Each structure stands twice: as C-alpha cells, then as structure tokens.
Computed example of a mutant assay.
Amino acid sequence: MSDATYLTLEKLTLAYGKTAAVENLDLSIHRGELLALLGPSGCGKTTTMRSIAGLMPVRSGKIVLDGRDITRVSANKREIGLVFQSYALFPHLTVFENVAFGLRLQGMSGAALTEKVEAGLKTVGLSDFAARKTPDLSGGQQQRVALARSLVMQPKVLMLDEPLSNLDARLRLEMRTELQRVQKESGVTMIFVTHDQVEALALADRIVVMRNGAIEQIGTPEEIYNQPASSFVADFVGFENITAVKDGMLVGPAGEVKASGPLPQAAGLAWRPRSIPLGSGPYKGTVRGVSYAGSSREYVLETPLGPVKAEVDAALPAYALGTELAFDLPPEAAAPLQKMD
C-alpha cells in the first residue's frame, strides 16, 4: 500500500430528497489500499460507495480520483469496478462470457480478449470453469466470477458491496483469504462495504466506522479493535461492558460506584467480557444468564452498574442462575473512551 492519497472525498454531502444521508464527509484513500466502510444499516456507507461509483448524485462537495475531479463524470467513464452483493451475473452465459462481457462492450475481441479473460480467471482460480454456466457454480465461485469480471477491466478502484454476506460461514472464511490474495497480487485499490466487524477486521488495511452519515472513527484494524474512540465504536466491535466516568467514579443506572483503581482521563471505559474477573473483586452481582460457548462460558450479572457480561474458561466450575458473585472491573484492562452517547 502506498502512502500517496489516491481517492479523496472533500466535504461530500449526499441526500435523498431533502434528507441528508451523508454530510460534509472528508476521506482520503491511499493507492493500493484495502479499505472497509463499516457500520450498521442506514449509516451512509452504501450511499458513499454509490456516490464514488457515480450511481448517486452529489449535492455538494468533490470526489477526486488519481488527480482528476470525477464528481460530475458519468459512471461508465470513472474507471471504477463494482461487485454487487447479488453478483449480477448472466445465468445464460458461460463463466468465460460473463468475464468477457465488459471487454466486448469496449470493442475487444479475438486473441486479445481471450488472453485477458484467461488471465482474469487464473487470478481468481477459475481457469478450469470457463465453459460452465454460472448457475452451476457455488456461491464462492460465483463471487470470484464477479471479481474477475471487474478486474479484467483494470479499474482504478474496485468497490464491493457486502461481498461475503450471501456465503455460509466456511465460504466466508475462504473468500476473505481469496479477496486479500487477489487485492495484494493485483495491487488494485479496493473499498468494501460491510456491517460485519469481524469481516472488516480480518480484511482491511484501514477501517472507516460510519454512523448517521458521518465518520465516527478511522484506524487500522488493531486501532479500531483495541482503542475505540467512542461508546458507539466500542459497542460495535465487541466491548459489551461500557460505563461512563464522572469525577473519578463509574456511573451506572443505580448511581455512582467507586472504581477499584485509578481511572484514566476519559468520558467512559469499556471492557470485553473476557477482561472481567469472576469470583473475586470489590463488586457483587447476581447471575441472571449463563451460556456455554464451547471453550468458554459466558455469564450475565445483574449489578448496580447495570448488566455486566463476563467470559471465563469452560473448564472452570459453573455458577448456577441466582448465584451471587464477586467480580472486578479493573481500570487497567479497560479501553478509555473519548466520547459517550
């Protein structure tokens, strides 16, 4: 991945009628980067993707790609590839013809077209499937056809909309690896839209977390996972215990509670369930839920700070519902949050 800015969104505002879906968004994307737009439904991530591709008109702001202002350029002249969630393949055509479709529209034919398509199929590992019809392929194979069809057009940016959502769990794991391989080998700048934080963490060089049409946080997967900036991001990436901080005290529904150690300067603290020690500590809670998860057991405690979720080794003795337990919320194990909702 290059450090050079390749695609820039400047004060981008997008709207449906009078309702702004994205407002004054600034984002710089590097050449050769694999970037994830992550967030819940309605946060503006797909709208942003559609505007980059030229499928969504821009109310105000600017989109610059490789030094060229493409804000008002038509979609077919932006040199941007799209892989849709549905793959949008032609069922009556062979794999070869699906991949060749865009090239034929550009006037390519003969040996040049064959060479290009075969190279594209080789890139995604489908050289032996050229003669098959797409309905005869698995979901993962269909996705690779869609990927090859976009790649042979040599786009400056390749965009994928929820690329793994139609696949089962095993295929999702396989396709994560495949997408990373293809992206790194081709060097194409890739942006994918997802609501799945595990998918974004596993694939992306950087993650843009979006909320209500704005960017909540940008960072590497490690930064997003370990250093969430707000309670929204913390909750989205699996911090299930989030507490406000006020005047050196933890704040819960029942009021303020003294912390078990010195607190950092922060608006709030967030703990993952596995960071909560059970069986010892200054706090008391009552077991209201127990879930067996194979290697671990998860507990939900009713406490003065609200529900607290803890995860412990399944080999440890189990606690029954209604058991009163000591527990701790060690400040040193928490992620400090800059902003609380």
Rank of each mutant, 00 (worst) to 15 (best):
K62F: 04
E23L: 11
M1S: 14
G61E: 01
A100E: 01
M249G: 05
L25G: 08
S74Q: 15
A254L: 13
T134E: 11
V124Y: 01
K246I: 03
L65R: 06
V99H: 09
P221W: 07
A130Y: 01
A234Q: 04
L151Q: 03
T47A: 11
Q217Y: 09
R59F: 10
Y319I: 00
L160W: 09
F96Q: 00
V22H: 04
L82V: 14
F129T: 08
L113Y: 00
S28V: 04
R288E: 14
A146F: 04
S280P: 00
G306Y: 00
G67Y: 15
G268V: 08
M175K: 10
R297S: 06
A200E: 02
E79V: 07
S230I: 01
V95L: 03
N226G: 07
G187R: 02
G102M: 08
S74K: 14
G139N: 00
L203I: 03
R78Q: 03
D247Q: 12
L171A: 02
D196K: 12
T47C: 01
P163F: 11
G255K: 05
G248I: 03
V64W: 13
L27D: 09
Y6T: 10
A36M: 06
S165E: 01
F101C: 02
L305T: 08
E185L: 12
A293D: 01
T47G: 02
P262A: 14
A200W: 08
G107R: 07
T5H: 12
Y299L: 08
Q106P: 02
D69P: 07
A314Q: 02
A310F: 07
G279N: 12
N226M: 11
S291A: 14
A266S: 02
G281L: 12
G61T: 10
F129C: 13
T71I: 05
M56F: 14
E23H: 14
Y6R: 04
M159F: 12
Q141Y: 11
Q338E: 15
F232R: 08
K45C: 09
V152G: 03
D168V: 06
R272M: 09
P273Y: 00
S60E: 15
R297C: 10
L329K: 01
